[in-house]
Design a binder for these strands. Structure first.
Length: 578
RNA sequence: CGGGACGUGGCUCAGCCUGGUAGAGCACAGCGUUCGGGACGCUGGGGUCGGAGGUUCAAAUCCUCUCGUCCCGACCA
């Protein structure tokens, strides 16, 4: 490709709308442009990267025995009503009516459609295992799209679905997909980690997320320093033991109400009373499927809403608003306490055995002291409802854990028979028995990977693409196209690369060298070959590696061999074929 | 949806508080010089100041409504 003819509008300045690095750089490097909130056009450079990611995903899926299909993006409401998700999925599902006033939606995911397809075609255990996938634009009407491609409303996703005869076979498929995902992310050249995850609205019994490690990630990952346990914080289990609890063998003193005027937060109250936060019972009022519930955690802990939701098997939970809190507790926010509350009380396991602690008195400006959990707190339910903190231990091996940030780029689920039961997807087994198919589903955020790769690979000057997904392998940079020697050498090299199948971008623009160098750095092409005075005077070409900054000078004759020797996945393969 | 910020040539922003003939830099077009890290000079084109309504002799500026965008929270590949 010739730069002079390439639609690559780079920007010197960052548009005001971009906040995170990948978004800024994708706009500046002319990869994407925004049409509306969370909706972007891919320009040629961005599309080339997207296509390379897709190609790797496709190859690995095919290798793992999955077959590619393309399912409709517009879907009838009936299917979603059948699965129950027409109600459940919420406003993220973009709904509309066609000209006949039939309810439709844009596909945010395709469990319904694929299950419908398979239930019509597959009747026998002989037709399984069956594993189908597609790479397609999805639409989810996110409440708050953000960070450019990181959380768009429209995004490219690989979604795959497997159908097996039983749990055992499904587990095998799951493992095969797990391995395929490892291969995908390894080949993409990303630093990543597979973690145990919550299953969210997709449902099912078991799942792993694939996280690209990056500070800007929206997810927190808990990983063990001793073993290979890793989980999303939404899911990570808390190891609880009686040890380390504040306990005493002496009987409690009676509860007592003390004035704590104006002290509402944990910090304010504990500082005021001169106690550690572990000695406070934090009481939060939640609205669980419309019912108020008091949720207790220790002062130094945070409620994990996902765990709470799962424990209560609730559809929807949210913190209560000020008015409701006042109605239930009789006090403003900051003075809620478990003693005498007329609602269901759910407590974290760490609350058990808390002794001589402090809690809100359900009265403005007052707290209770000498509260003994066993005597004074009558929880309806104890469970693991808090998030792991940095001080916790690994639930597997009890070694210290570590918290880090990640971007979720893949998610695999074991669905069991959730959808096959809802949609009556059955087959006949060897004994002629009708059985439900056992499903799995497997997603990869293709467009998000592009953003994640940039989050992980960039410097002050611009993008540093992994070789595997770079839009071009090589950038040829003739410093001055008005110099005949330089221009002809560039054309010569350009044509050799083209004939060898190397993806090469020739910056044949009649621009100053500085502009070309800046664009070269910005667009992140792994290898830059500069043809300048060093060539006209000494016959030397400069190879610069974008990622490492390493530069070396070679003759025209040495060029191909040198690139061949340089460590990269793609370049050698192309060059060798030539 | 709750909280915050912001909409002024293609981009980055000033002007608004204190109403009085729309500005700068970059980008773009032409000419000249320059030519290995976002050059310089001269000339030129381009904005009904997001939109609607109001106040006023007069609105980018003040008021009301509205649309859009971004950030923080609930959602998720």
């Amino acid at each position: 490709m010739r730069f002079s003819r390439f639609f690559l509008p780079t920007l010197k300045e960052t548009p005001a709308e971009a906040e995170v690095i990948s978004h800024k750089l994708m706009l500046r490097a002319g990869m994407i442009r925004k049409l509306a909130a969370g909706i972007y056009s891919y320009l040629p450079l961005g599309l080339r990267v997207l296509r390379k990611v897709e190609a790797i995903v496709r190859e690995e899926m095919n290798k793992a025995g999955a077959q590619e299909v393309v399912l409709p993006m517009v879907q009838p409401a009936e299917l979603w009503q059948e699965s129950g998700r027409w109600e459940f999925y919420g406003k993220e599902l973009l709904r509309f009516k066609d000209r006949h006033a039939r309810d439709c939606c844009l596909g945010p995911t395709h469990e319904e459609v694929i299950t419908d397809l398979v239930r019509r075609e597959v009747r026998s255990y002989r037709d399984m295992p069956l594993n189908l996938y597609q790479i397609q634009t999805k639409f989810r009407d996110e409440i708050r799209p953000r960070f450019g491609l990181m959380r768009g409303r429209e995004f490219v996703m690989k979604d795959g679905y497997s159908f097996d005869v039983d749990e055992k076979a499904s587990g095998k498929t799951y493992l095969a997909m797990y391995a395929a995902y490892q291969n995908v992310f390894r080949r993409l050249g990303l630093q990543f980690r597979a973690v145990e995850a919550d299953t969210g609205s997709i449902g099912g019994s078991f799942s792993h997320e694939f996280m690209v490690l990056a500070e800007t990630g929206e997810d927190t990952i808990v990983s063990c320093t001793g073993c290979d346990y890793a989980a999303n914080i939404e899911k990570a289990e808390v190891v609880w033991s009686e040890k380390g609890q504040i306990k005493s063998n002496t009987p409690s003193r009676p509860m007592e109400k003390v004035a704590t005027p104006g002290r509402r937060t944990v910090e304010e109250v504990t500082t005021f009373m001169g106690i550690p936060p572990q000695q406070l019972v934090k009481t939060l009022i939640f609205l669980v499927d419309g019912q108020p519930v008091a949720v207790l955690v220790r002062g130094d802990h945070e409620v994990n809403e996902i765990k709470l939701k799962n424990l209560l098997q609730a559809r929807e939970i949210a913190l209560a608003d000020e008015a409701l809190i006042r109605r239930i507790t009789g006090a403003p926010v900051g003075y809620s306490g478990p003693v005498g509350l007329p609602v269901k009380i759910v407590a974290d396991q760490a609350i058990q055995g808390m002794y001589d602690c402090v809690a809100g008195a359900n009265e403005e400006g007052h707290h209770l002291v000498h509260v003994d959990a066993g005597r004074d707190i009558h929880a309806d339910l104890y469970g693991d409802i808090r998030s792991v903190t940095a001080g916790d231990r690994c639930p597997r091996c009890k070694q210290p854990i570590r918290l880090s940030r990640g971007i979720e780029v893949g998610h695999i689920f074991r669905l069991g028979t959730k959808y096959s039961e809802a949609l009556k997807a059955t087959y006949l087994d060897g004994e002629g028995q009708e059985r439900y198919m056992v499903m799995g589903c497997y997603g990869i955020g293709v467009s998000r990977i592009v953003a994640a790769a940039i989050e992980q690979g960039h410097d002050e000057s611009g993008i540093i693409f992994p070789v595997a997904i770079a839009p071009f392998d090589v950038l040829l940079l003739p410093v001055n196209v008005n110099d005949t020697v330089i221009r002809e050498a560039a054309e010569d090299i350009y044509h050799e690369f083209l004939s060898r199948g190397v993806h090469v971008l020739l910056d044949d623009r009649d621009e100053r060298a500085g502009i070309k160098f800046k664009d070269a750095d910005l667009t992140g092409i792994p290898f830059r070959i500069t043809i300048g005075t060093k060539f006209t005077k000494e016959g030397l070409l400069e190879i610069k590696v974008r990622g490492t900054g390493e530069t070396l000078f070679v003759t025209r004759e040495q060029l191909v061999q040198t690139l061949l020797n340089m460590h990269s996945e793609r370049i050698p393969r192309c060059l060798q074929q030539g």
